[in-house]
Write a protein that binds this DNA or RNA. Structure first.
Length: 821
RNA sequence: GCCCGGAUGGCGGAAUGGCAGACGCGGAGGACUCAAAAUCCUUUGCUCGAGAGGGCGUGUGGGUUCGAGUCCCACUCUGGGCACCA
């Protein structure tokens, strides 16, 4: 493990130089073509772990590569520094979250510097910086003024043990509290929301314009969940002037409606419930409202076979298609928050309705002929309608259209688009977050804090105890204030904003962190946006990426970001995660392999090279017993380069011969392969290409014939430039020693000479009946006829054919000729 | 249950429909060394064969094609996302 060079000394020297000389600082008026490279805003959890290392290795590669391509690259860094871990740690330690957070930020900063990742540190942003909070709050108030922020009652996760509300992330998969282990309940509280649903259609449509992984785009589309259907009335049997309004995507199955269902929260439920049924219904509603979200929406089995809890309300409605009277049920499989909170039930064509009908003994009438081989309950495929009056004989799309027209004419029908996406709940009953800048006045109601009084910052003398009570709520000095409008007694909002709000616009502040009077100057930001390459983990596929997309659209619409593009991240790359023993490597799981131990042995360059080489960047990495050996192998590659640059064991000759030229050609072919690999996120093959090149050069230079010195230097220089974005320290050191103090990172990215990459002769494979029998050297632009002739003229082929005449010859010049007998 | 991925040597992985296994790890043998480490060289899919050489090979079964790891159909296993959204 002895290195031929002092890893630590070299790495520290260059890290200091990049920092001191501001090598990667970039100004907004830089005349070069621009490139915005960004890794996702990290939560400061302390020293970097392998997941960070992987992320920043990729990011730094992009930054250095694009810089060598002559671009002005914006490479900022900062911290998503509000959040629960710091608050919990502070409660535990009896200290302030800021102390904890600042320490962790320092550690992570050190880690990325130690990796050799370079940033324009002047642009650093962190969420708990009052200068950032001021604008975070301004944005909130601007949204409020524009009607994009509103207050409403909503169910939240309530932990009885902690006597507080939990964020979704704090609820375990089994519905228990992450901290106390108590079963989390649902509770209705007044909360702040952002109207992201106003943008549902645009958020959905714009997905098509993004160069993102298909997987992420699909996840976002599913999350938004657009569905087209018809909303219409089911008149009450006893009083046709009143009606139950329902939403369906399958109006064509209307003749199969055998009952209707309302959600337990439905406003008409009380009215629909008859005295005979009241006790049963109320028991069911009570159970549903007390039930946890988990109990209500899932079970140990699949949706189709769920225990369909429900009860008859005693009322009947008229099916407008058949004119028949059908019973109305209340059931918790219908959600109060989607559509109208009530449905028409078609058990023959809907699995959930089918399961409910089975449990409650309700009739099932097929309206679509099932295929002959169909077995099972509900049939949701296409087919011809039966038992459906004027729809009989029609296929599903046609019947849908005619049924919709019928409902428009006969049942107050209205075509409607519904979304699964809900408004964004931004209130958090937390201390370590950005305070929501409003006050509550008995006379004036909700009053925004005037802009010149921002930021609203939480006081430091807050008692952090283990009660779980929101500390701000009980801090009289903070809560008691005066109304900015009437001057009367008022109380400050005690909740803070979801930390996802902080990560929804930080990339805009990066582009213009120097502006004092506003969140950012749109003109400055427009020079950089949209982000050319965004890099992060797949775990943010939905929430962060959706929120940030919403924020930018909203910021443009409320006038804070005129002229900016409406999509923040043009290209997204999601890296694979690191696994140890099958589970994700993470701090919370405590299964980290710290990178520090490698810095003194293989160095940052060796570790970076490992992450690039181990496999496709998008794939997960399994950290195994073999991993250490692979890391060692990557370091060995760097050692060999170092020694070759010292001309260890090299021999030389004077005139440049054919062998020398061939190595130079191979070097130029490698330029193509590496460039291609970097452009296509195939870093593992780019590294492999460089390893091959080293093998070629090394074998040649150390052969007894030796190498032409000038050609060797030319090849080595090209190799160093290609390797520079991957292993920045050792390449910088070697380049400096070979070129009198110059920096490899200020060199341009090599361009292959086409005259050198072209081949005079290529190997053409000759097959007989699809089996390789021989190879011949031919010109790359050989004609089909000549290729065939060359194949047939080959000695081995002649022997193999033994005079037999081919039935057919397939020639694909210059790759192969296949002779079929 | 639905929607996405994935399956290639002992291992990580490579391969515009055209020489499967690049590159690396590991293994075996050798050189150097008093010895070891480091380094360098050779070798390494399985199998039959002394050898020359042959046969078999990309999860399974079919198909398209002169030719399939690659395209199509069905299936198995596996990873992930969503999960009563009417």
């Amino acid at each position: 493990m002895a290195r031929p060079f002092d890893v630590s000394a070299i790495e520290q020297k260059w890290q200091a130089r990049w920092l001191d000389e501001g090598t990667y600082e970039v100004d907004n008026d830089d005349p070069r073509e621009r490139f915005y490279a960004l890794c996702m805003y990290p939560y400061p959890s302390g020293t970097a772990h392998q997941g960070h290392i992987r992320n920043y290795t990729f990011g730094d590669l992009v930054v250095r590569y694009q810089t060598m391509r002559g671009k002005a690259v914006l490479s900022p860094f900062g911290f998503d520094s509000f959040g629960l871990p710091a608050e919990n740690a502070a409660i535990k330690a009896g200290s302030h979250p800021r102390l904890f957070t600042d320490a962790r930020m320092g550690e992570l900063k050190n880690s990325v510097r130690r990796l050799g990742a370079v940033y324009d540190w002047r642009r650093e942003v962190f969420s708990h910086d009052p200068r950032y909070m001021k604008w975070a709050q301004t944005i909130f108030l601007t949204f409020l003024e524009a009607g994009l922020a509103y207050r409403a009652e909503a169910p939240v996760n309530w932990c009885p043990g902690c006597a507080t509300v939990l964020a979704n992330e704090q609820v375990n998969a089994d519905g228990t509290c992450d901290r106390s282990g108590d079963l989390v309940e649902r509770k209705n509280l007044e909360q702040w929301f952002f109207k992201i649903t106003d943008y549902a259609e645009e958020l959905l449509n714009d997905i098509d314009t993004l160069e993102w992984p298909e997987r992420v785009k699909t996840m976002q589309r599913n999350w938004i969940g657009r569905s087209e259907g018809v909303e219409f009335d089911l008149p009450l049997a006893v009083d046709a002037s009143k009606a139950l309004r329902v939403f369906t995507t399958r109006p064509d199955t209307g003749f199969g409606v055998t009952y209707a269902v309302v959600a337990p929260e439905h406003p008409m439920l009380d009215f629909l419930t008859t005295d005979d049924e009241r006790a049963t219904v109320e028991a069911l509603v009570a159970r549903a409202s007390q039930a946890t979200e988990l109990e209500r929406t899932s079970s140990s089995d699949t949706g189709a076979s769920l225990d369909k809890r429900g009860a008859f309300t005693g009322s009947f409605v008229i099916n407008p298609f058949s004119g028949e009277s059908v019973p109305v049920y209340v059931a918790d499989y219908v959600l109060g928050t989607y559509g109208t909170g009530a449905i028409m039930a078609v058990p023959a064509e809907d699995e959930r309705d089918y399961a409910f009908a089975q449990v409650h003994g309700l009739p099932i009438v097929r309206t679509i002929a099932t295929p002959d081989d169909f077995e099972g309950g509900a049939y949701s495929g296409d087919g011809l309608h039966i038992n459906s009056g004027f729809l009989d004989g029609l296929d599903v799309p046609t019947a849908k259209e005619q049924a919709a027209v019928f409902l428009e004419q006969n049942a107050n029908g209205l075509r409607k688009v519904n979304y699964r996406l809900r408004d964004w709940l931004v209130s958090r009953q937390r201390f370590w977050g950005c305070p929501i800048p409003v006050v509550y006045c008995d006379g004036c109601g909700i009053v925004p804090v005037p802009l010149d009084q921002l930021p609203v910052v939480a006081p430091d003398d807050v008692v952090m105890d283990k009660s779980g009570q929101s500390p701000l709520a009980t801090h009289e000095g903070f809560r008691a204030t005066t109304c900015p409008t009437c001057g009367g007694v008022a109380r400050r909002e005690a909740d803070t904003m979801d930390t996802f709000t902080d990560s929804s616009w930080y990339f805009l502040r990066y582009a213009d962190p120097f502006t004092e009077g506003k969140a950012f100057d749109p003109e400055q930001v427009a020079k950089w946006m949209p982000v050319d390459q965004y890099i992060g983990g797949i775990e943010h596929a939905i929430l962060h990426l959706l929120y940030a997309r919403f924020y930018l659209k909203a910021l443009v619409d409320v006038g804070l970001a005129p002229g900016l593009p409406r999509e923040p991240f043009k290209r997204l790359f999601t890296q694979g995660m690191i696994r140890l023993d099958g589970s994700k490597m993470s701090k919370s799981k405590g299964n980290l392999i710290a990178p520090e131990k490698y810095y003194d042995t293989v160095g940052a360059d060796g570790l970076r090279l490992f992450h690039l080489f181990v496999g496709p960047p998008a794939d997960d990495v399994d950290w195994t017993e073999q991993t250490e050996d692979v890391i060692e192998g990557c370091a060995r590659f760097l050692d060999r380069i170092y020694r070759l640059c010292q001309y260890d064991e090299c021999h030389f000759h004077d005139d440049r011969g054919e062998a020398d030229l061939e190595v130079l050609r191979e070097t130029h072919r490698t330029i193509v392969r590496v460039t291609d690999g970097l452009e296509k996120w195939s870093y593992n093959t780019a590294v492999a290409a460089l390893m091959e090149l080293l093998n070629t050069i090394s074998k040649w230079a150390r052969s007894t014939d030796g190498a032409h010195r000038g050609t060797l230097d030319e090849c080595l220089d090209l190799l160093l430039r290609l390797l520079a974005p991957m292993a920045p320290h050792i390449t910088a050191e070697l380049w400096e020693s070979r070129h009198e103090g110059l920096s490899v990172h200020e060199q341009t990215w090599p361009v292959a000479d086409e005259a050198l990459t072209a081949r005079a002769l290529v190997t053409m494979v000759v097959q007989i009946n699809g089996k390789v029998k021989s190879r011949v050297e031919v010109s790359p632009d050989i004609s089909e006829a000549d290729a065939t002739a060359a194949a047939l003229a080959d000695e081995v082929i002649g022997t193999a054919l033994a005079g037999a005449s081919p039935a057919r010859v397939v020639a694909v010049p210059p790759r192969l000729v296949n002779i079929i007998l």
